[in-house]
């Protein structure tokens, strides 16, 4: 049996280690475990970015038919990651600041940072500038669900708020109270940071 890369139906190229049966078992040897964890966290973040997935839940390892089946399972070798193993990996992602528990005070669901909030802030500002929406007031909804798909389509509210807060600190955005809640206005500001 040769271990090779595999391209999933969604077009993601899985690394060859994903077809190694032991990859789906927690390793008792610390050095091996560290290597596997590195591969797993990288795989999770790259796949999330590929599919624009923001949340990963321990339940994703328990149910079939979810968004994460392509990496949490390998039906070709009949292996899957078990929930406690996934739970451990979520903890690793959080401790490496590559994800946060969302909502806070639980450990079953994480919000993945395949872009860090700082990077989202840049994407957000660039998008506002390139679509000619500087100095206009936009609602959070208009940013997360734009009529024309954008790099920000589907961004979770907490992540969007974190990005906006970063821009506010840099004087590149303002929160404005509007009739039905809050809006945000982007300013050219000091782009050199």
């Amino acid at each position: 049996m040769a271990l090779s890369t595999y391209t999933t139906p969604s077009g993601y190229r899985l690394p060859s280690i994903h077809s190694a049966p032991p990859f789906f078992t927690p390793q008792p040897n610390a050095a091996t475990q560290a290597t596997f964890t590195k591969h797993w966290t990288r795989l999770i973040l790259f796949y999330a970015r590929h599919r624009r997935l923001f949340y990963l839940r321990v339940e994703d390892a328990e149910t079939t038919g979810g968004d994460w089946d392509e990496i949490l399972r390998n039906s070709r070798i009949n292996r899957r990651i078990h929930p406690p193993h996934l739970s451990f990996l979520l903890g690793e992602l959080v401790s490496q600041h590559l994800a946060v528990y969302e909502p806070p005070k639980q450990t079953r669901t994480v919000l993945l940072y395949w872009r860090l909030p700082e990077e989202w802030a840049e994407v957000l500002h660039d998008w506002a500038a390139s679509t000619g929406q500087m100095n206009t007031i936009l609602t959070f909804y208009e940013i997360a669900e734009p009529p024309v798909p954008s790099p920000l389509s589907g961004i979770p509210p907490t992540l969007l708020r974190a990005a906006i807060n970063i821009l506010i600190k840099q004087s590149r955005a303002q929160i404005i109270a509007i009739s039905d809640g809050e809006g945000v206005r982007f300013l050219a500001g000091n782009t050199s940071r």
Partner: peptide, 15 residues
């Protein structure tokens, strides 16, 4: 080999 030397990997889902 597994624990001391890290020369092999464990698979707990062997058919």
């Amino acid at each position: 080999m597994l624990l001391r030397d890290g020369l092999c990997w464990l698979d707990e889902q062997d058919e």
